[in-house]
Simulated scan of single mutants.
Amino acid sequence: MSDKPAEQNDSNKRIKRDIAEGILFGMGNPLLDILVSTDESFLEKYGLEANNAILAEDKHQSMYQEMSDMKNVEYIAGGATQNSMRVAQWIIKEPKRATFMGSVGEDVYSKILQTRAEDAGVVVRYQKQSNHPTGTCAVVVTNNGKCRSLVANLAAANHFNISHLENPENRALMEKAKFYYISGFFLTVSPESILKVGKHACEKDKMFCMNLSAPFLCEFFKDPMMQAFPYIDLIFGNETEAAKFSEIQGFGTTDIKEIALKTADLPKHNKDRQRIVVYTQGAENVILAKDGKITEFPVIKLSEEELIDTNGAGDAFVGGFLAQLVQGKSTEECIKCGIWAATEIIQRSGCSFPKDLQYPG
């Protein structure tokens, strides 16, 4: 009888032991998504663009109530980083591997967010705000699910501060992790908290990951973004974010492959770990810049009938990527899992997933 099955079983056990509790740490804006499917006239009414993400202005405040009054409205636990933590936990299947911190109000919305995150296995440590409600995000889906416009009303999420990280119990959770992920949206809230985590990761030779997250961040929050950039070991983004980043950084190119290589070559503190850049392009190939080389990965094509909602696709991609990263898998395998996760999520409404589905990789 061959010893191979026993060897494989031992290997599987070893991999599982390596996924320690709290290995992944995320920090961001926990938001309750208010989602509706509508048409372009709604975008025009509020001065919105398809496939864009912005912060709410005064002119958008009435939009939330209008959406809440629509018959097809859905309320979904959201926030970019929290979504990615939930997806990573869903794929890992072992609870308490991911920890998430952000700021919420003391209201029913925060209870919904916490329940959804904990149901997925995420350890949640919210900073509670008694004077501010939990943040919400308007998700306006158009073009039969192909396009989404996000308008975030941060509310309590905007009041996270570094004192939450300095709490001994929370600091212990942060220091326990080996991998860190923070979306670019958090640059508008607490850049000092991002730098605290980035510096810790750099000093301890742990992996620090971020996301460009939205074109407006590359432009209007350039300074805090570039203060964090030398600590970033792995950066995610999509084609529109990459194009704006190239423009603001003066790269002098619109070619996404060249942008990825130039992004990877920006100054970096940890010289022992070269920066990895991953740019998604919707239905087009995923671009990887690593070790001075470009690799492309085709995505899984879906029919129009199969595509339900692209909201959360990017968050799901990151979650799938991180689920493999914390297991020591290759960058190529991380990207393949990211593509698989995003493909599953866009066949459902919001960033939700079938709990019992197993990643086949």
Rank of each mutant, 00 (worst) to 15 (best):
E192H: 04
Y126G: 12
D315H: 00
G47T: 06
L24V: 08
Q227E: 03
G26Y: 00
A242V: 06
N285Q: 10
H200P: 08
L234V: 04
N170C: 11
L165Q: 09
S103H: 12
P354V: 15
D18T: 06
I19M: 11
S130R: 15
D3S: 11
L261F: 05
S193Q: 08
A172Q: 15
K199G: 07
F100Q: 04
N9C: 06
L288R: 09
V139G: 00
F179I: 04
R97D: 01
C209Q: 05
I91G: 14
N170T: 08
F221D: 07
D255T: 12
E49M: 12
I287Y: 10
P354Y: 10
L234N: 03
L31D: 00
P215F: 09
G26R: 02
G237R: 06
I300P: 00
I23G: 05
P30I: 00
I248S: 14
A155C: 08
I19T: 04
V286A: 06
A56M: 11
R116D: 14
Y75K: 13
D10P: 08
K199Y: 02
T81H: 04
M210P: 03
V189M: 03
K244N: 07
Q129A: 15
A157F: 11
L48P: 02
C137P: 09
F245D: 03
I300Y: 09
V141F: 06
K128M: 11
L31F: 02
G338Q: 08
E74V: 03
G250Q: 15
K222V: 03
T240Y: 06
S37C: 10
G338E: 12
F229Y: 09
C147M: 14
S193F: 02
Q324E: 15
A243E: 13
G105F: 08
D69P: 08
K178W: 03
T38N: 01
L307T: 01
M210V: 09
E74L: 15
Q281G: 02
K206G: 06
M225N: 11
C218M: 15
H132E: 13
E258T: 09
N167F: 08
T253G: 10
A201Q: 03
L266K: 05
I112G: 02
Y75N: 08
I235N: 02
I345S: 02
Q61G: 05
N29R: 11
I34V: 15
L212D: 01
H159F: 10
M210E: 11
D10G: 04
H159A: 07
N238L: 05
M226E: 01
W90E: 05
R348G: 07
V140N: 09
L261W: 05
